Simulated scan of single mutants.
Amino acid sequence: MTGLLVVTAVAAEAEAVRVGLTGVDATVVPVGVGPAVAAAATARLLALAEAAGRPYAGVVSAGVAGGFAHRVPVGGTVLATRSVAADLGAESPEGFIPVDELGMTPEQLGVASAVEADPALLAALRAALPDAVVGAVLTVSTVTGTATSTRALAARHPDAVAEAMEGYGVAVAAAQAGLPFVELRTVSNPIGPRDRGSWRLREALTALGPAATALARVPTG
């Protein structure tokens, strides 16, 4: 196996990542927004590569994210220890129940609410990006947009540093293919009340290129 598959949501993220990948054996593909399209497209790309006799050695979900303001600054880089399906589960009078706490076995569910980052890939990126903030990155289908929901999300996931919309989907596809996975993001805005004036998307995309240079440290052979 050789090379990395780097999956982003949109073309602007893919272009930003490519800036930092000069000389790196990697394929960067924008697949669309949200966990469903990210999972389906990643699975297809992995299957096509395997069928062609050129399977990938690892999978990376990369792009911009919202960051928990008290945990990571806007413009900062985050590395996921695990990618979490933060809104996969059920509501109850006592609050949200994650899917793997609904009383069914993992075999019955066929899925867990989080996929752990590959230890070797994560260690390589941490060594190359010593200033990165490390913690869980939440995957949501609906971006958090109120102070109340932000507090609830932070309380449910005390190790979370950021949220985005694709990581868990990409992670599941990688896990199904038996490939190592890691998630790398730069922070464009604080999680909370939706205020486009506080977003720094251009700065986050600019930061994504230098962050992506760390992928040169990831073993791909």
Rank of each mutant, 00 (worst) to 15 (best):
G95L: 11
A162I: 09
A90D: 07
A127C: 01
A155Y: 06
T142Q: 13
V133R: 07
R82A: 14
V99L: 13
E163D: 09
A47D: 10
G32S: 09
V74M: 06
E166H: 05
A43Q: 08
A124V: 08
L129I: 05
L129N: 07
E107A: 15
A47W: 00
A52K: 01
G67H: 09
S92T: 13
T142Y: 04
S61W: 00
V115I: 15
A164T: 10
Q108H: 09
A41W: 01
A40T: 13
G63Q: 07
M165G: 01
E94Q: 14
G53E: 12
T139H: 00
I97P: 06
A51L: 09
T105C: 04
P98R: 15
A80Q: 03
G145M: 07
A43M: 01
A80S: 07
L121G: 04
A117I: 09
F96L: 08
F68E: 04
V60I: 02
T150C: 08
V72S: 10
A57Q: 07
T81F: 04
A49V: 04
H70C: 12
L109T: 14
V72G: 08
F68W: 08
V74I: 14
V115E: 11
P55W: 00
A112D: 09
G76V: 05
R82D: 04
A85E: 11
V161Y: 07
P119V: 02
T105E: 01
P98L: 11
V37S: 08
A57C: 12
Q108T: 12
V111M: 12
E91D: 14
T144F: 02
V59C: 00
H157M: 07
L88N: 05
A127S: 15
P106L: 06
G110D: 12
V99S: 13
A164V: 11
V140K: 09
V115R: 06
E50L: 09
A80W: 03
A69V: 15
P73D: 07
A43P: 03
T77P: 10
A62T: 11
G34Q: 03
E91Q: 14
T81G: 04
G34I: 10
L102Y: 12
L125A: 10
R126F: 10
R156I: 12
D159K: 05
G34A: 11
R82C: 07
L153W: 09
A38G: 14
V133H: 04
L138M: 05
A65Q: 07
R156F: 05
V115K: 06
E107T: 15
A120W: 00
L122C: 08
A136W: 04
G89T: 02
V111P: 00
P30V: 14
L153I: 11
A39K: 03
V28F: 05
G95Q: 10
A164Y: 04
T144V: 02
L48Q: 11
A132L: 02
T142G: 14
A85Q: 13
L46M: 08
L48W: 00
V59T: 03
T81D: 06
V137A: 08
V60C: 06
V111S: 06
A152L: 13
H70E: 15
A112M: 09
R156G: 15
E101I: 07
A52M: 02
R71H: 09
R156M: 15
A36C: 12
